[in-house]
Design a binder for these strands. Structure first.
Lengths: 148, 148
DNA sequence: ATTCATGCAAAATCTTTGCACTGAT
DNA sequence: ATCAGTGCAAAGATTTTGCATGAAT
């Protein structure tokens, strides 16, 4: 299924006149293989280097920017100084939510959309046409609660 | 009422053994006077310079960091490369929500807490102890909708 | 040939830090 | 005298850009 997703991303690129170069493919594979993580550009760069040692950091940045534009990934910032890149679920219409643990730093994901009702209220009451959202909770994860 | 809020912030600082220096006071005043905006450190710096021309950018950064620690302000990042600082409402228990317009860039605020029910679900189902949240909607504001 | 993409290094941004100095207790 | 706080400049960190080179049509 990795191959299927690569194919789909390839078509998405082609439909916008972009190519899936070896460097771009290696980058996408890294994202697919680390789907549960929230990698920074530097993280991606180091992982891609294993597959394609000659790649430059600038290319990784350019690729991530391109994938963000195509909505293959979402760029998010958890408050440390770096942008992180998170693969969208296949066919997901919304960006998933995050749980950031303030003790251990772990970032968990909530794939379920919990904002349906809230979005209806916002669209109606604030006359705001919602295209996307970012929802992050900061707190203590279940693992750290057990520890204490 | 600006004076009242300054006094309260002063007490908050004192209770943690910090002083309300002239530079810090000038910074807080700028934040109070621009409560509706979402100023970057640089923005704050330029505004504070009118009141206290000798102030340095580093002091502004240090003050904003301090105020964040005391939960007088919340630090937030809307995806452009800069951190922005947003004064908390007096006595607010939660960080307010934001509406970011992808056409004109305007950032509106929702003071009302719309996440009560969602938070109950998250705490129960994910066993996550919520301390804070960030909720931002990206879309088209009512002004830009009228324009189109 | 032309065009798009790449790697490298340099530049640009934003933020933090070291350090000598000031001002209040 | 001490010590927190400051300004300035330098350093750090992250991201972007310029440009010569390379790959693909």
């Amino acid at each position: 299924m990795v191959e299927t997703r690569i194919e789909r991303i390839k078509s998405q690129l082609h439909s916008q006149k972009y190519k899936l170069t070896p460097q771009r493919e290696a980058t996408v594979r890294v994202l697919l293989e680390n789907e549960k993580d929230h990698l920074s550009a530097e993280d991606v760069y180091l992982l891609v280097k294993d597959k394609a040692p000659e790649i430059g950091l600038a290319t990784v940045y350019r690729t991530l920017e391109l994938l963000t534009e195509l909505k293959v990934v979402d760029k998010i910032n958890f408050g440390d100084g770096v942008s992180r890149y998170d693969l969208r679920q296949e066919g997901a219409t919304h960006f998933h939510h995050h749980l950031v643990c303030i003790e251990c730093g772990a970032v968990d994901e909530i794939q379920e959309d919990l904002l349906g009702d809230v979005e209806k209220i916002v669209e109606k009451r604030w006359q705001f046409l919602i295209k996307d959202h970012r929802l992050t909770f900061h707190g203590i994860c279940h693992r750290c609660q057990d520890k204490d």
